[in-house]
């Protein structure tokens, strides 16, 4: 039963995404501007970092190339989650205007419907930007490519995407209770990726502990990246801790799933 729910959910997700992509194409000019805008979005963020480096050689002991590596990895991971689940932030809006009910009378899981709602292909822009910068940084960095480091690259990006994805779902679930609180989610998702663009050495130990043990953002890229870059962890965690990223991601997804169920149940008992 659980397995079939997953497969019907995925199938419905793909179907609805297809509809939104076709809808988008009804406004082709706008779509092109939006995609360009998305490319620029991450672009300008990195331009700001590059501008900083016109004044300095290192930030928190990291070179521009290394920061570009961090920037690229978190952008790709975040971009993946944003593409797949980025519109979860609109859930509160649906609860407010009552259109949540129209989703509940369809024979497919709500999560799939909400996640696919207003799917925006333009969000590919962020992934492309991140990938370009990641490629650029890799071409300039002198990394000792051992087998485990090569393996860690895709593991890091996918786990990172899953961790951000779990945060999007958690944020969405929260809006079942607080329908006007979509901004809270931004603090962890957009705030999280901004944080991870910079070297961990820049931040205080308390904050590092918080994003390692409480909201495990550090597993998105910091901890795996430190190992790839051959740098020690400022908290003194073992070098291979980055390999725990998939486990952490699974944990996050489980928590998000439970929160989602609880949120949906709360909605079904209060209807608002």
């Amino acid at each position: 039963m659980a397995e079939s729910a997953v497969s019907t959910g995925l199938r419905a997700y793909v179907l609805i995404v297809g509809m939104w992509v076709r809808s988008t194409m009804a406004y082709r000019t706008s779509f092109l501007i939006m995609t360009l805008g998305n490319l620029l979005a991450t672009g300008l963020d990195f331009v700001a970092i590059a501008l900083m480096f016109t004044h300095i050689g290192q930030l928190g002991g990291f070179t521009l190339d290394e920061v570009a590596f961090l920037y690229g990895t978190t952008s790709v991971a975040f971009g993946l989650a944003d593409l797949v689940l980025g519109t979860m932030g609109r859930l509160g809006q649906r609860v407010r205007d009552g259109t949540m009910d129209t989703l509940l009378v369809r024979p497919v899981p709500i999560l799939a419907q909400v996640a696919a709602d207003r799917f925006a292909l333009r969000r590919l822009g962020r992934i492309i930007q991140g990938a370009v910068l990641l490629g650029w940084s890799l071409s300039r960095l002198d990394i000792d490519w051992t087998l485990d480091r090569v393996l860690l690259m895709p593991v890091m990006l996918l786990s990172g995407g899953a961790i951000f994805g779990a945060l999007f779902v958690l944020g969405g679930a929260f809006q079942f209770w607080a329908k006007d609180a979509s901004e809270v989610q931004n603090a962890f998702t957009f705030g999280g990726t901004t944080l991870l663009e910079y070297p961990p050495t820049v931040f205080g130990k308390e904050l590092l502990r918080g994003v390692t043990f409480v909201i495990p953002l550090a597993f998105v890229n910091w901890l795996p990246a430190l190992h790839i870059l051959g740098r020690p962890d400022p908290l003194g965690l073992p070098a291979r801790i980055g390999f725990a990223a998939p486990l952490v991601a699974c944990g996050c997804c489980a928590v998000a799933g439970l929160a989602w169920r609880a949120g949906l149940r709360a909605y079904q008992s209060t209807g608002s």
Binding site: M19, L104, V105, R106, P107, V108
Partner: peptide
């Protein structure tokens, strides 16, 4: 809910379930 959904039809008078920017057929 989802098993029931296949056996019932619902029309909410003021909330359309149709796709705004696409032809009815889609």
């Amino acid at each position: 809910r989802t098993r029931l959904a296949r056996r019932i039809g619902v029309v909410f008078g003021q909330r359309t379930t149709l796709w705004w920017d696409l032809p009815l057929r889609d």
